Simulated scan of single mutants.
Amino acid sequence: MPKLKIAVIISSTRDTRFGPIPAEWMVNLASRRDDLDVELVDLKSFDLPFFNERMSNLGAPSEDPRAVAWQKKIGEFDGYIVVTAEYNRSLTAAMKNAFDQAYVEWNRKPIGFLGYGAVGASHAIDHARTIAIELHMVPVRSAIHIGGSEYVKVVHQRQPIAEIEPAIMRSATELLDQIAWWGRVTRAGRDAA
């Protein structure tokens, strides 16, 4: 069976963002598996405008070439892991906009989350899961939450992610196992349809 193609998406576009650090850690961890082909996708490099199409691309093709480029990129994958901060108890505006810029391309694929912040981005991840359901995705149960003292270690004290692996590795393994299982199931369903 061919490997599943999984995107690890950095959802923050701020200049001072922390997201690339856990995203690269996730890519390295997932790349050790023989069932996943993982690619880092940085929202910052897509320069997406705020959603301004007539409707989602389910109802009409998008006109902005930047939205079309995003749709093409997202459509390449069998599943996604979104690395997110938590801003005011929700996901980043950039990620919400990225969800809105595509519709068809997200459908019938699994999505998981790695969150960081005071409470491990738990509110942001819950909000993102609700959005994913509306996009006909399969949000997996397990998530990685870098919060509390682990967050302080890696963000404020600038210690490497390896220092907190004992606290997050079990969740990371479960997340990857669930992405792989649902990725195989949903790919088979898409192929059969």
Rank of each mutant, 00 (worst) to 15 (best):
K3F: 02
K5W: 03
R17T: 04
F18W: 03
G19F: 05
I21F: 14
L29Q: 15
L29M: 15
A30N: 00
S31D: 14
D34Y: 00
D35N: 08
V41D: 08
D42P: 09
K44Q: 07
F46W: 09
L48E: 04
R54Q: 15
M55W: 14
S56R: 14
G59W: 06
P61D: 13
R66C: 07
R66V: 02
A69R: 11
A69P: 06
A69D: 08
Q71W: 04
A85R: 01
E86N: 10
Y87W: 08
Y87P: 02
S90D: 02
T92Q: 11
N97R: 01
F99H: 02
D100E: 07
E105Q: 13
W106N: 07
K109M: 07
P110C: 05
A118H: 11
A121R: 04
I125K: 06
I131C: 05
A132R: 00
V138I: 15
V140N: 09
S142R: 11
S142F: 01
A143S: 15
V154Y: 06
I164S: 05
M169N: 14
A172I: 00
T173E: 13
E174D: 12
L175E: 07
L175M: 15
D177W: 00
Q178V: 03
A180H: 13
W181Y: 09
G183Q: 03
V185M: 11
A192H: 04
A193P: 03
A193C: 03
